[in-house]
Deep mutational scan, measured.
Amino acid sequence: AIERGSKVKILRKESYWYGDVGTVASIDKSGIIYPVIVRFNKVNYNGFSGSAGGLNTNNFAEHELEVV
């Protein structure tokens, strides 16, 4: 089962992080479509409006993740 702290591989082909491994930061139990927040070591794009980097978290559905 996917739980907080799990290392997961991203299976969503259109994702910037496809094939990468991230760490589960949290799981939303409220029934939303993409409840699993995954944190990565790298950012997906340069930040804007003065922020240092881009996003390094993204929401995924459990079926888009594979525990490694």
Rank of each mutant, 00 (worst) to 15 (best):
L65K: 01
V8E: 02
T57Y: 14
G50D: 14
G47S: 08
N56T: 12
T57A: 08
N58F: 09
D20N: 09
Y45R: 14
W17R: 02
V68R: 02
A1H: 11
P35N: 12
V36R: 00
G5F: 03
I27Y: 08
E14P: 05
R4D: 08
S6D: 10
G22P: 01
N58Q: 15
K7W: 11
S26I: 08
F40A: 03
Y16M: 06
G47Y: 05
R39Q: 13
L65N: 01
V67P: 07
G53M: 05
R4V: 14
R4Q: 13
K9C: 14
Y34I: 02
I33H: 10
S26R: 11
T57R: 04
I27S: 01
L11G: 04
T57D: 07
R4Y: 10
R12S: 05
R39G: 05
V67C: 05
A1T: 12
V38E: 01
K42A: 06
E62S: 08
I32R: 07
Y45K: 15
K7S: 08
K7T: 08
N41D: 13
N41H: 09
W17M: 02
Y34W: 08
E66G: 04
A1M: 12
K42T: 10
R12M: 06
T57Q: 09
L55R: 07
S49P: 13
E3Q: 13
I2F: 06
G53T: 11
V68G: 01
W17F: 06
I32N: 11
E62K: 08
V24A: 01
A52Q: 12
F48K: 09
R12Q: 05
S51H: 08
K13S: 09
V43M: 08
K7L: 13
G53Y: 03
Y45T: 15
I33Q: 14
S6M: 13
F40C: 09
I27E: 02
V21K: 00
N44S: 11
V21H: 05
S26G: 12
A52L: 10
P35A: 11
V43F: 14
G53D: 14
A52I: 12
P35I: 14
F40R: 03
G47W: 06
V43D: 15
D20A: 11
G53W: 02
E14Q: 06
V68L: 10
N41W: 08
E64V: 03
S49Q: 14
I27G: 00
R4S: 10
G53R: 05
R4L: 14
K13V: 12
I10E: 02
V24K: 00
T23F: 10
A25D: 13
V43G: 11
G22C: 13
D20I: 13
G47I: 04
V8I: 02
A61Q: 05
S49F: 13
E14T: 09
K9D: 03
W17K: 00
I10Q: 02
S30H: 05
K29R: 10
K42G: 12
K7N: 07
R4E: 14
G22E: 02
L11S: 03
T23H: 05
E64C: 06
G54A: 08
E14M: 06
S15C: 14
I33N: 12
I33T: 10
E3S: 13
V67Q: 05
L11N: 04
N44L: 14
A25Q: 14
V24G: 00
N56D: 14
F40L: 05
I37S: 10
V24F: 01
S49A: 12
G50H: 10
I2P: 06
V43P: 14
I2S: 02
F48Y: 08
K42I: 07
E62Q: 09
E3H: 08
I2W: 01
T23I: 14
T23G: 01
S49W: 12
I37H: 10
K7I: 11
E64Q: 01
V67H: 04
D28H: 04
A61L: 06
T57C: 15
R39N: 06
K9G: 02
E14L: 06
G19M: 11
F48E: 15
A52M: 10
R12F: 06
Y34E: 07
N59D: 07
S26W: 11
A61S: 06
V21D: 02
A52S: 11
F40N: 03
S30T: 10
I37W: 14
N41V: 11
G50Y: 04
Y18P: 00
S15M: 02
F60V: 01
K13F: 13
G54K: 04
I10D: 03
N58S: 15
P35R: 09
I10V: 11
V67K: 06
N41Q: 12
L11I: 06
F48S: 15
F40G: 04
E64D: 03
F40I: 07
K42H: 08
T57E: 13
V36W: 02
Y16W: 07
K7M: 13
K7C: 15
H63E: 10
Y45F: 13
T23L: 09
S51D: 14
A1G: 10
A61H: 03
S30F: 06
K13H: 07
G19T: 04
H63Q: 06
V38Y: 00
D20P: 01
H63N: 08
G19Y: 06
S15V: 03
Y16A: 05
W17D: 00
V8S: 01
G31Y: 09
V68C: 13
I33E: 10
L55C: 15
P35Q: 10
V8T: 02
V43T: 11
V36E: 00
V38H: 00
K42F: 07
E14I: 05
N59M: 09
G47C: 15
K42L: 05
K42Q: 08
F48T: 15
V8L: 00
V8D: 02
N58I: 10
Y45Q: 15
H63L: 05
T23S: 03
E66C: 10
G54F: 08
H63K: 06
I32S: 13
A25H: 07
S51V: 12
F60Q: 00
F60C: 04
I10T: 01
